[in-house]
Design a protein around this nucleic acid. Structure first.
Lengths: 203, 203
DNA sequence: CCCTGGTTAGTCAAACTTGAACACTGGCAG
DNA sequence: CTGCCAGTGTTCAAGTTTGACTAACCAGGG
């Protein structure tokens, strides 16, 4: 899946050159198994797949290590930008995967992607509202199916609230982005110094 | 996945005895491919798997048809109830799959499941809030990781809004549940007479 | 020295998903 | 009557995910 690819490319990019086991420990430390389909086995097979496609290169040695190729960097940028820009109701892990790495983009690019995301979300809301009216008037489907739309709409509403908030935080100068001057706005020891404590309300 | 099993069991339950192709057409009519991992191929293999596990029985004839066994009915109830009761941030299709069939339960059971769901959601919210405070104070992880929690929290907030609304609709007498007297509260021709027009904002 | 237990490192079969390919039927235009 | 297309009904290879299993290594206690 594309979340898998983004997480692997992004994590290799941070730690390169890096071998499977270190990524495995790091990603499981981020509790990634709780919100993405990324268990030990798929890390190794995902790395091999990405290497076969030329997005990673295997450095010889024991154990085999990986680093990003130029193509891999391009694909990483593409996946990251699209994860932030294009909402995917039905797959929240797309956004969460993007959020793992959003500070590796320039600040203005993140802002622009989120603006675009909000427009798409707005369009989805009005699309679903009109679908609800359609079901209610035409009765081509049982009335209870409108709840599918209501539920999806509520998730989208919630997400729009988050987009507003995070934009405000970004504009207020939070976080250090790829193009920001040095000197952390808050003291941070390393890039990914330790655990990201368990994000969503895991399964 | 459990969404797949619920959708197959629920659809067989409605149309039984039924063969693969009819389910395929019906489910794709519900636009299920847009929000669950259920494409033509997995319908047939899913049916075979469920039959192997004794949840469906194959009636002999050409083409092979399926009906629910007693075990299948039990499993259906279990999956449906859990889809409504247990929130799964990170897999919205669980809830949507449950919503396809929620009127096959008695009204009070749906209400009770949603009440329980709301309590779990509330607990998740406070768990995530305290996790955010943890990240902000301890700095064990980069500040930007709090956005994972913020985003998840917003989805959960949105979902809680939906739970409130749907409870109000149910209490106001909308929908016809398994235990309601006959006489539709709104004219509905059949159970699943035709298309469920494309629920979420597809891929 | 030997045994236990933990960490490192990775493999593998089984299960699931995907979507294109296959084969058959029947209608109907030329 | 022949060729073509649309619909019916299913299979299959290729890819992905799962998580339990293997195996080597090192450290420390008895």
């Amino acid at each position: 899946m594309s979340t898998t690819r983004l997480l692997l490319l992004g994590a290799v990019r941070i730690f390169q050159p890096v071998h499977g086991y270190l990524l495995r420990r790091e990603l499981l430390t981020w509790q990634v198994q709780d919100w993405a389909h990324l268990n030990p086995g798929s890390i190794y097979s995902g790395l091999r797949t990405l290497a076969k496609r030329g997005l990673l290169e295997e450095t010889d040695g024991e154990p085999v290590s990986y680093r990003l190729t130029a193509d891999g960097e391009v694909e990483y940028q593409r996946l990251l930008s699209s994860a932030l820009r294009q909402p995917e109701p039905g797959d929240p892990s797309r956004l969460l995967g993007g959020l793992c790495f959003f500070t590796t983009l320039p600040r203005h690019e993140v802002r622009e992607a989120l603006r675009a995301r909000d427009l798409v979300l707005e369009a989805m809301v009005s699309g679903m509202d009109s679908a609800v009216r359609g079901v209610e008037s035409s009765r081509m489907a049982p009335a209870s199916t409108v709840e599918l739309f209501h539920a999806t709409r509520s998730w989208v509403d919630g997400e729009r609230g988050w987009v507003r908030d995070v934009c405000a935080r970004i504009d207020a100068g939070h976080y250090r982005f790829a193009d920001d001057p040095q000197g952390p706005d808050r003291p941070v020891e390393g890039l990914w110094p330790a655990a990201v404590p368990d994000p969503p309300g895991g399964a």
